[in-house]
Design a protein around this nucleic acid. Sequence first.
DNA 1: AGATAAAATCACATATTATAACAAATACAA
DNA 2: TTGTATTTGTTATAATATGTGATTTTATCT
Lengths: 192, 192
Amino acid sequence: MMLPSERRKQILNYIREKKSLKIVQLSEWLGVSEMTIHRDIKPLVEEGLIIKTFGGISLNQERNEVNKQDCVYCYSPINQRLAYRLILQDQRIETTCCAHCGLLRHKQLGDEVLQAICPDFLMQTTISTTSAWFLMDTSLDLGCCQPQVLSFQHKEHASKFALGFGGTIYSFSEALHLVFNQMQSKNKGCCY
Amino acid sequence: MMLPSERRKQILNYIREKKSLKIVQLSEWLGVSEMTIHRDIKPLVEEGLIIKTFGGISLNQERNEVNKQDCVYCYSPINQRLAYRLILQDQRIETTCCAHCGLLRHKQLGDEVLQAICPDFLMQTTISTTSAWFLMDTSLDLGCCQPQVLSFQHKEHASKFALGFGGTIYSFSEALHLVFNQMQSKNKGCCY
DNA sequence: AGATAAAATCACATATTATAACAAATACAA
DNA sequence: TTGTATTTGTTATAATATGTGATTTTATCT
């Protein structure tokens, strides 16, 4: 016999894979009555993770998509233009609102991160964060998290940008530690 | 047996592909009675997604189109980050892929344009184009239309940007004429 | 127009699914 | 152990879906 909580996780995994399922199927597969399945999925429906249809359920694609609305680090809405994505070992993808939160989360997760990507601030091309260049302390305030971190594909672009807007250029590992240390020393919330 | 909700999705996909279908076809294909097909398509017809014809249905092209993703001037895909919008006297809104095409279209339409807006290149705030500052001939190539035009809310930002990336700053009316004249003299396509 | 065939709609019967109420089983703390 | 709370299953009832056949509407003939 399976634990109720386990069963509910199973349902979520199953529906994420199959996209749409019948109540009868779930009932047979999990070896419990249909009534129990109904009770299991009720909270999931209320949460909006799945959608109830007559006789079955279907996955709410929007709510289960990569583009989760809020930053996993600071919970502010994600601006796709600055979004920093962490691809984890278990296939999950986490998104933060900007490079600031992205770097902090990256340090937090450590080896769990398989790969991380972010957009070039100017070109909007997707780049690997480990080979990116990060510009901090510019005079331009984008209104996201502080200390603000801008990401560039080419070091040249970063330095040209710094000519007008000031700031200092850092490599990935430098930026990673710097943001972390600045947050430690200031010891206060960054976002909002 | 298929879930009702699945069947309805199938019908939408099928009609989107085939553009027009007979009720009998759907009935046979999905293994349900024609009455059921009628009941399935009723909400879709009411929503305006499909159009009912005697004996069948056809796709409502307008309602199923991908929300006008193309520039009204050069027909290239619109990058929301650079998009230039023209609000016309008859309430319509036209969108161009970037300030380049936006300015050209603006000049073309003249008094028909009530108002025009575009995002600040750096801040992504929405600004009125008439009070914006436009930067041309920078060394940064975004891969949109040439000659490339960047829009800024603050003249200061434009000039700081120009420090690193070069280029010349113009007011709205200056930019309007300049882009037009450059296109005239070169007498060639700008985009792609 | 009137005739005809095809399709749509309606009304009803039936089948499936959902919900609520209650009973049984289980888990757990005192 | 006992008492209590939670979970699960069962049953009855309500809601929804589907199919059938009668009737009405529509399109297309002459």
